[in-house]
Amino acid sequence: MSTAGLDRRTRRRQETIEEILEVAIELMETEGVAALSLSAVARRLGMQPPSLYQYFPSKMAIYDALFQRGAELVLAVQREAVATASEDEDVLERGLNAFCRWCLEHPVYSQLLFWRTIPGFEPSPAAFAPSMESVEDLRQHLQEAVDAGRLHPDAAGEEAIALFTSMTAGLLSQQIANQPDASFEDGRFIRLLPVVLEMFYQRYAPTRG
Rank of each mutant, 00 (worst) to 15 (best):
T16I: 07
E185C: 03
E15H: 04
M132Q: 13
I190F: 13
T84K: 02
E31I: 00
D7H: 05
L151E: 06
M167Q: 13
Y109C: 08
I161V: 12
P130Q: 07
D147S: 08
A35Y: 04
P57T: 13
Y204M: 14
Q54W: 04
L138N: 11
R203V: 11
I17Q: 06
A98Q: 12
A148L: 04
P194M: 07
R203I: 05
E87G: 01
V77H: 00
T16E: 05
L96V: 13
A42M: 14
F56A: 09
P49D: 07
A40C: 00
V195F: 13
S2L: 00
F200G: 07
S134E: 10
E144L: 02
R11L: 05
A145L: 04
T10I: 03
G170S: 02
A148V: 04
G32L: 03
L52D: 08
S58K: 08
C103S: 15
V195S: 15
R139Q: 06
P57W: 11
E72Q: 12
Y53H: 09
A160P: 00
N178C: 11
S173C: 06
R203E: 08
A83Q: 08
E159F: 04
D181H: 03
D137P: 00
A127E: 08
H141C: 03
L75Y: 05
L138R: 07
F164Y: 15
Q179C: 02
A129T: 07
L6T: 03
K59L: 13
T30S: 13
A156D: 08
A85M: 10
V108E: 15
Q140R: 10
E80I: 03
A156M: 07
I17H: 00
G209H: 05
E15P: 01
Y204Q: 15
L192S: 12
L151T: 02
R208K: 14
D137N: 10
S39R: 10
G120H: 06
Q48N: 09
R116E: 15
S110H: 07
Y63G: 14
R79K: 14
V77I: 08
R8S: 10
D154M: 07
F99A: 13
T16H: 02
L73Y: 01
R8Y: 10
